[in-house]
Design a protein around this nucleic acid. Structure first.
Ligand SMILES: NC(=O)c1ccc[n+]([C@@H]2O[C@H](COP(=O)([O-])OP(=O)(O)OC[C@H]3O[C@@H](n4cnc5c(N)ncnc54)[C@H](O)[C@@H]3O)[C@@H](O)[C@H]2O)c1
Ligand SMILES: NC(=O)c1ccc[n+]([C@@H]2O[C@H](COP(=O)([O-])OP(=O)(O)OC[C@H]3O[C@@H](n4cnc5c(N)ncnc54)[C@H](O)[C@@H]3O)[C@@H](O)[C@H]2O)c1
Lengths: 216, 216
DNA sequence: CTTGATTAGTGAACCTTTTCACAAGAATGG
DNA sequence: CCATTCTTGTGAAAAGGTTCACTAATCAAG
């Protein structure tokens, strides 16, 4: 048994995205070379990444787009709908609520929370805003969700994360600049745009390219 | 001369962020071990990363927070203000315009563009919206900027990128899902939240943690 | 001045990840 | 049936990064 590199798992999402594009274009068959060109990757890497999870191709032929896409979705756990709960319906939160591509890729917001009394009870992008304190109630009903999206102000982030964890949620997409302290069994993905900006600054200043080939 | 790992450069931004926090707390001296704990990194890695760019510490003592911070800013090219130009003042664009931490870290928007005639000429977050076609004019005046932030609809992204490149801009922070085709000497950083969500899905489904230790 | 405790800087070992190169399987055309 | 052309799957080599372990420098206390 081989140890699967974390980064290989991340790349599966990239491959799936491009396979979806091929599928929408009616393409039925694709080779690792062609897919690699689309993704900006190395064909051997694609083959190796896929090999960690099984044999999905046909030698001398290539990969059947639809079959591979479904296989990848199964591996990644995205052959289902994932429900998102938004915390902090400010500038960023509103943009996230209105981001149609989430739904297209199987992510739907089922709940939104804010501590601002003026916001609670109102509708934003067709979603009624609840109070953060009510998370345990909301989670029992149709507002139940699997992944928390944290977009509150930085000062309330850790506090809010605690509440999320206490409510039994095990995954947080964290847009705040705070390094969250959570139990071991809770997964956190930190998103920080400024780090990416710094990479651009360095590249512009020194002329040496430190940008990342693949989206993150 | 050693080749500097790309990822080491990225980590400098992380170190700088935590040094800034120490500085704000009035801490004057820090060891690689202490900084490593804060960043969730290995102390040897910090020392090695810094060593790529010079000798910033004092043996037996540690690093003077302020000195190291300034040195890192110089290395990264962030000891100055960088001007940003926004393309696409939609949901996401508005959130970005209103994101105060950009300014705090030396990034300021000096121009914003949209193709929507109703938006052009109006003010969003105190910024007057220009027409994308006018980029070459705007860049000659006070709206001049160093880095383009691309947040248009996906269908217009490539087209808009071309215009940006033609106007002489060499760096793009790309929020659209499009893989931009640009000349070799133009740096592009792609931001894609859904990839991060997929990592959470995989972790939740398999129980094996593929989230990234450091923000990206 | 000497000893002991710290801590940066660094070559080397170690580990991970990427890329290469080729065998094995599949289709096509004679 | 055979030769040719593709293309996957994969062991092995190469490249890239991380961590170890030690040396050199600094400081404080006796
Ligand atoms: N705006 C951006 O482009 C951007 C980019 C990157 C990161 N961020 C980060 O995202 C977060 C939100 O940014 P923003 O620009 O939307 O800020 P914002 O001030 O517009 O919105 C914050 C919202 O969170 C709500 N809130 C505060 N505490 C809460 C709690 N405990 N529960 C629920 N809601 C709570 C506030 O009432 C407010 O509506 C910040 O931490 C910011 O650093 C923003
Ligand atoms: N909203 C989000 O949270 C989010 C998250 C990740 C990525 N994105 C991506 O960011 C982009 C923008 O998202 P959004 O939700 O703000 O969409 P939006 O539809 O709200 O805004 C798009 C804006 O871009 C403008 N535009 C189109 N072509 C233009 C051009 N050539 N020059 C200047 N302006 C132009 C449109 O007029 C519109 O105002 C999309 O590509 C989307 O996929 C959005």
């Amino acid at each position: 048994m081989h140890k699967i590199p974390n980064i290989a798992v991340i790349r599966l999402a990239l491959y799936a995205k491009h396979l979806e594009m091929l599928h929408n274009d009616g393409v039925e068959l694709v080779s690792s070379v062609k897919l690699a060109k689309m993704c900006g990757a190395n064909p051997a890497q694609i083959r190796k990444d896929l090999a960690y999870f099984g044999q999905f191709g046909v030698r001398g032929v290539g990969y059947y787009v639809n079959d591979l896409l479904n296989a990848l979705k199964e591996v990644m756990g995205t052959n289902r709908t994932w429900r998102l709960g938004l915390f902090g319906v400010g500038n960023l939160g509103k943009a996230l609520l209105g981001f149609e591509q989430f739904a297209q890729r199987g992510f739907i917001f089922t709940a939104a929370f804010d501590k601002d009394i003026d916001l609670v009870g109102t509708e934003v992008q067709g979603m009624e805003i609840s109070q953060s304190e009510d998370i345990k109630e909301v989670i029992k009903g149709p507002g139940c969700f699997d992944i928390a999206v944290l977009a509150t102000g930085a000062d309330r982030a850790q506090d809010c994360a605690m509440r999320i964890v206490e409510a039994g949620i095990h995954a947080i997409l964290n847009f705040t600049p705070v390094r969250l302290v959570v139990p071991e069994n809770v997964f956190v993905e930190n998103v920080d745009f400024t780090v990416r900006l710094h990479a651009l600054c360095y590249s512009l200043t020194t002329g040496s390219d430190v940008t990342q080939r693949h989206p993150r």
